[in-house]
Write a protein that binds this DNA or RNA. Structure first.
Length: 990
RNA sequence: GGGCCCAUAGCUUAGGCUGGCUGGAGCACCCGGCUGAUAACCGGGAGGUCGUCGGUUCAAAUCCGACUGGGCCCA
């Protein structure tokens, strides 16, 4: 045997490709140059939704970040300037404080105070960047290009100054107010939350569900009477001041087992009674108004108008008893009714939700912990009419999972309800993807937009820039300069606008001259991130590209941002600039695990994307996302990633490898200009390519990566399974060098175009193909597919050609099925396929090439069309047939004549000999010396095709075919028709 | 209780807006082919009451309604 010659380099795996591409991007500084590309191009306005980098990213973040990258790359290739490509970090707020609290084991705010607010805030400041390196690493591996060297950070002084500017602007418009409002309140964090924060934290909880009786004066005949009220929050009962009924409901007085009369709404009676009720009295709701009852507990004390029935339309009978217990401190409706009836408040909870000594038996107990004590008391007092438990969704703190309570607190607000109409109107201009967000989830939320609870009783956040004097005059501050002016002194050097420094600043009240103190609140961190479009440019303090008249063109985040970032961006844009915040919003759905269950931290079925990216690469992960229904609930796991990527990216890579090996052998340069080939297959492929350019462009214009990826997948499939398969011999044919060059040019140009179409979706593989096809791979730092121009389709493709080819392929399918049924392998040629039809196929109109394409595919010598005739002409013994029932019948003979049979045998022998070449590690360009031994039909077949054999195996010198016994050193095969043996060695070049 | 979304083969999905040949693919499975794409490639087969029921229509996976199941959001 000849010594092993160097084998062609194997096709690279896309993970290796990614490493190579990343190295090039790094060495050639491609990313930072892409970020400032097209400085004079039209702007494509974008903002990154800032993550908080105090935790590891999970796979859901990877999904969002892969998807959001696609439109940016696409627009850049269309000549747009991306404004801004800044990365961003959300630095403030409860999530950050909570992490630091956990580290120290703090449970309460006073732990922080004891530790030192300044030290605490310094730790928050560093903690927000704890995982920045991992976030950056993920972005790099996934191919999300943002400017991580110059990110915006919500805790930086210029950013905060812009936020102060916006707050002052809202103040000037009368949109900032302070009030005593009932808000969701986290007793652990000791702060109220906003409604969009509450939205993030609903959980299934079990609570008591009790019906309590309240004593009212007996009826005329002296029967004792009671109101029935229902609650799932017994701890609110000591604060009960009223009961509400609805004027237009009918109430029944029902005889209880003890003979007493119990009052509840007619529509609610069925829920609490077994069997038909014995009705003692019927009351209209209005009859009950003013009815006084005995307070359950003495703690709230007497007060004007307390402990009576009032009327309100919010009462219903779908739930509860139709008589609603009102504790004005603990519910929005309760507060409203309490204020209307002037009964005052009773709030015996301290800031941690613990009962004070206003309720001695409960003092020191948390509000939830008080429930059992209260239940026992009610039971003892005989006031418990019914007792049970209920499983329901209850709001919990989105960061620490503590059950929230609704309570009336002093708080600052953005008066969102004042400009609800603008919110709704501006939403009409947003293109939501998916579109149902517009009037669905997001639109619904706008319709009921409540005032935005802005202030937080916390430490690490943007300080609320409002100062107050003892007389109650408020002074908002809109810039650092304004603050210095008020102070009458310059701000300290390196002024840091956080509580530690700002709280110590006081100035005389502009109205009365008294000393002012800052209102001791920080603001909702969502206000910070919602300010990103202008605050990232320090607007209006520095000149920059932010244009108050222009919305962002596009943002892309996860569904969980509906009431988060999507909402706060929208609210602030409407309030400050009276326009929408963004023109297009791409919303990605949740991820499901292998069994279709939502991935979440609490379920523990999330996984870390980094190892997956390491093993499978960014393109594979991205492709799997595109191929899933990512606007809904996508199931993306390492397995689906592998499969999705292999199918398209793997196949494309092998097509490229075929091209590369042949182009190299022929010394042909890649072609980047559109060729004008004559061959049918080439023309068809370019027509398909035109159609693909058009489809992909349309899809990406609509932010539809899924449609683009589906189209590309179908194209790669056609390219591999039809164009390349049918064209393969053309790439090494010596008979027609012009055709050979045409095939090279067509395939090369197609791959070049594909590299561009693929660039927004699979940036690494696209770069690899582009570089390889550029002629000088990775040599020129100024060449990248991502700097390139988006392809323009010459046309929508040739529809007639596409259809005719599709028809031809349909016939090929029929022929292959017939062959299968005839049991004749496709290397044995058959004389003919006969098709009886009165309706000649359109593909014959493509000329003789079409006919020979089909004949080659089916390895038949002739395709014969006949008018429909007597089926007896094709007896089953000799023919296999297929009738489509729609006007044509196809027939294929079951066997071939001897000379064709011999040709088949020859191909069988060739196959073995080619394998022997490969086993000997010969490159396909190596010439060989060959000696063969064969007998019988095999020998005849070889001799019949001697010259072809010599040519295709690259035999140099004389080919001997011997009838003798082969030596033991020869490779030998025993075939049905005789044996074949061969001895081959590489010919030494002269 | 209200709103929104989803349901196509074992799995991932195309088609649905604009109703019309036999509902396309890929993976897995069975069978086979090819061997100058080999850490490959290609074909054939089997597998579908297009969630259920009803309506509109000459014709429904597609349009309408109800229901079932799943998911998300809100109360």
């Amino acid at each position: 045997m000849t010594p092993a010659a160097p084998t062609p380099p194997p096709a690279q795996h896309w993970v290796e490709i990614q490493h190579r591409v990343e190295k090039f991007w790094q060495d050639a500084d491609v990313v930072s140059r892409a970020l400032v590309l097209h400085p004079d191009g039209p702007p494509f306005r974008f903002a990154e939704g800032p993550p908080t980098a105090n935790g590891r990213p999970h796979i859901g973040h990877a999904l969002t970040r892969a998807l959001k990258d696609v439109p940016l790359r696409y627009r850049r290739m269309r000549g747009y300037r991306i404004l801004s490509p800044m990365a961003g970090w959300d630095c403030h707020g409860l999530p950050v404080e909570l992490e630091v609290e956990k580290r120290h084991g703090f449970r309460l705010k006073r732990d922080i105070e004891a530790y030192g607010v300044d030290r605490f805030c310094e730790e928050c400041r560093t903690s927000v960047f704890e995982y920045v390196a991992i976030w950056r690493d993920m972005s790099r591996r996934i191919g999300l290009w943002l400017d991580y060297d110059r990110p915006y950070r919500t805790m930086d002084a210029p950013y905060i100054e812009s936020v102060w500017w916006s707050l002052k602007t809202l103040w000037d418009r009368g949109l900032i107010a302070k009030g005593f409002y009932t808000l969701p309140y986290c007793p652990r964090c000791e702060t109220p939350l906003s409604s969009h924060e509450v939205a993030q934290g609903y959980q299934e909880l079990t609570d008591p569900s009790i019906v309590v009786r309240l004593d009212v004066p007996p009826s005329e005949d002296g029967t004792p009477r009671h109101l029935l009220i229902w609650t799932t929050t017994p701890w609110t009962l000591p604060a009960n001041l009223l009961v509400a009924a609805r004027a237009d409901l009918t109430y029944l007085g029902i005889k209880g087992p003890d003979g007493h009369e119990y009052l509840l709404a007619e529509g609610a009676a069925g829920r609490y009674l077994s069997g038909p009720p014995e009705v003692l009295h019927r009351y209209a709701g209005t009859d009950l108004a003013g009815l006084a009852y005995a307070p359950l507990f003495p703690f709230a004390g007497r007060g004007d108008g307390r402990y009576r029935v009032v009327l309100d339309d919010f009462v219903g009978e779908a739930e509860g008893t139709g008589l609603v217990h009102i504790a004005p401190s603990y519910g929005p409706d309760d507060q409203r009714i309490g204020e209307r009836e002037h009964v005052g408040f009773f709030d015996p909870l301290d800031s941690h939700g613990v009962f004070t000594d206003q309720v001695p038996p409960l003092a020191g107990k948390g509000f939830k912990g008080a429930d059992p004590v209260l239940l026992e008391q009610l039971r003892t007092a005989g006031a418990l009419f019914q007792e049970g438990r209920i499983r329901h969704t209850y709001p919990t703190c989105w960061r620490c999972a503590t059950p929230l309570l609704y309570r009336a607190v002093d708080s600052w607000f953005v008066r969102t309800s004042q400009f609800r109409e603008a919110l709704v109107r501006n939403n009409e201009q947003v293109r939501w993807i998916p579109s149902h967000m517009q009037h669905g989830r997001f639109g619904n939320f706008l319709d009921e937009a409540k005032d935005w609870a802005l202030s937080r009783n916390r430490y690490w956040g943007t300080p609320l820039p409002i100062w107050k004097c003892p007389a109650g005059h408020f002074t908002p501050i809109g810039s650092f300069a304004e603050l210095a002016t008020r102070l009458g002194a310059p701000l300290p050097p390196n002024f840091d606008p956080h509580r530690v420094q700002v709280d110590g600043l006081h100035f005389p009240c502009p109205t009365c001259g008294a000393r002012t103190d800052r209102e001791p609140y920080t603001i909702d961190g969502w206000y910070d991130s919602g300010s990103a479009p202008y605050a990232q440019y320090h607007y209006p303090f520095e000149p920059g590209p932010f244009d108050p008249g222009e919305p962002l063109d596009y943002i892309g985040e996860g569904l969980d941002q509906t009431r988060g970032w999507f909402y706060t961006l929208h609210v602030l844009a409407s309030a400050l600039f009276d326009r929408p915040a963004y023109r297009a919003c791409l919303v990605s759905g949740l991820l499901l695990d292998d069994s279709g269950v939502k991935m979440s931290k609490s379920r523990g079925n999330v996984y870390d994307p980094i190892p997956v990216l390491q093993e499978l690469g960014g393109d594979a992960l991205r492709w799997a996302f595109y191929m899933s229904d990512y606007t809904e609930s996508a199931r993306v796991t390492p397995r689906t990633i592998q499969l999705a990527a292999q199918r398209t990216l793997g196949t494309l890579l092998h097509v490229y490898e075929f091209y590369r090996a042949n182009a190299e052998a022929d010394g042909l340069r890649p072609v980047t200009e559109r060729p004008t080939p004559h061959a049918l297959l080439d023309r068809w492929l370019l027509s398909r390519l035109d159609g693909l350019v058009q489809t992909t462009t349309e899809a990406l214009e609509l932010y539809d990566s899924h449609a683009a990826a589906v189209a590309l997948t179908a194209f790669v499939d056609d390219l591999s399974t039809w164009y390349l398969r049918r064209s393969r011999p053309r790439f090494w044919s010596d008979e027609n060098p012009a055709d050979r060059r045409a095939a090279h040019a067509t395939l090369s140009y197609t791959l070049w175009t594909l590299a561009h179409l693929l660039a927004p979706l699979a940036p690494f593989l696209a770069e690899h193909l582009f570089q390889e096809l550029s002629g000088t791979p990775f040599a020129d730092p100024h060449r990248s597919v991502h700097f390139g121009a988006w392809p323009v389709a010459g046309s929508a493709g040739n529809v007639e050609l596409d259809q005719a080819m599709a028809e031809l392929r349909g016939w090929a399918e029929v022929g292959r099925e017939l062959r299968q049924r005839a049991g004749v392998k496709s290397r044995f040629p058959l004389t003919v396929m006969v098709v009886e039809t009165d309706r000649p196929p359109a593909f014959l109109g493509l000329g003789p090439e079409a006919r020979s394409l089909l004949q080659d595919e089916l390895n038949i010598r002739e395709l014969r069309l006949e008018p429909t005739g007597d089926p007896g002409r094709f007896p089953e013994a000799d023919w296999v047939s297929r009738d489509d029932g729609k006007g044509w019948r196809a027939h294929l003979p079951r066997s071939a004549p001897p000379e064709l049979y011999r040709e088949g045998l020859f191909r069988e022998a060739m196959r073995r000999l080619q394998q022997a070449r490969k086993d000997a590690h010969l490159a396909f360009t190596d010439h060989i010396r060959l000696k063969l031994w064969a007998t019988g039909e095999v020998a005849l077949a070889l001799r019949d095709h001697r010259s072809r054999l010599e040519r295709e195996l690259m035999v140099e010198g004389n080919l001997e075919i011997s009838d003798a016994d082969p030596p033991a050193s020869a490779v030998r095969w025993d075939l049905d028709e005789g044996f074949l043996a061969a001895a081959l060695e590489r010919a030494v070049k002269a």
